[in-house]
């Protein structure tokens, strides 16, 4: 049998909307508000359910681009920092290249890679000004595709001031970073 999770979510949403909502005590506005938010989130999850793995792959791919742009400066800060970043990058590249990598392992690779970048920025506080500036500039440029993903992911929540300008998720999945492997 194929996975029926999306179908089940539809049923859960219908149940909450049609059966549970009318039964909520009208004198308890917080209960009514939280039920509405819960239904809303289940609907959001239904639309994202089969994109979660693709999101983790996209994030790891673009995080590797950021880390690679920092490697030279990482070694200039210290060998320990540079070596830690190389190890994290190596694990990340292997996880990304293997189609069988579990979603949780993609996330673990992302966490380790971002941890190495945090260490670099904090250890670089004593490095020459030019090195610190290069690190900041590389990170700011590299963050943009990741923020673009978050905008697309959370678009249904209604916070985007210009929703029309947000790239659809499907378009992001088909746009390679070009330097992931």
């Amino acid at each position: 049998m194929k996975d029926h999770s999306e179908n089940t979510l539809r049923a859960a949403i219908k149940s909450l909307r049609d059966t549970v909502t009318p039964a909520v005590d009208p004198s308890d506005p917080q209960a009514a508000e939280q039920l509405r938010l819960t239904i809303d989130f289940l609907e959001f999850l239904r639309t994202r359910l089969y994109d979660v793995h693709a999101r983790h792959r996209y994030e790891l791919e673009h995080q590797m681009v950021v880390a690679r742009s920092l490697l030279k400066d990482a070694h200039q800060v210290s060998d320990r920092v540079g070596d830690a970043m190389i190890r994290a990058l190596s694990t990340a590249a292997a996880a990304h290249a293997d189609a069988a990598t579990h979603t949780r392992d993609l996330q673990a690779a992302s966490d380790a890679l971002w941890g190495s970048v945090r260490t670099l920025v904090r250890e670089a506080a004593a490095a020459p000004e030019a090195v610190q500036e290069r690190i900041s500039t590389s990170i700011l440029s590299g963050m943009e595709p990741l923020v673009e993903l978050e905008s697309a992911w959370y678009l249904p929540f209604g916070f985007e001031p210009d929703p029309e300008s947000v790239t659809p998720l499907a378009d992001l999945w088909s746009t390679p970073s070009g330097t992931a492997s």
Partner: peptide, 10 residues
């Protein structure tokens, strides 16, 4: 972690 937040903190 968030490298953006690290840069902003600095």
């Amino acid at each position: 972690d968030s490298p953006l937040m690290e840069v902003a903190a600095r």
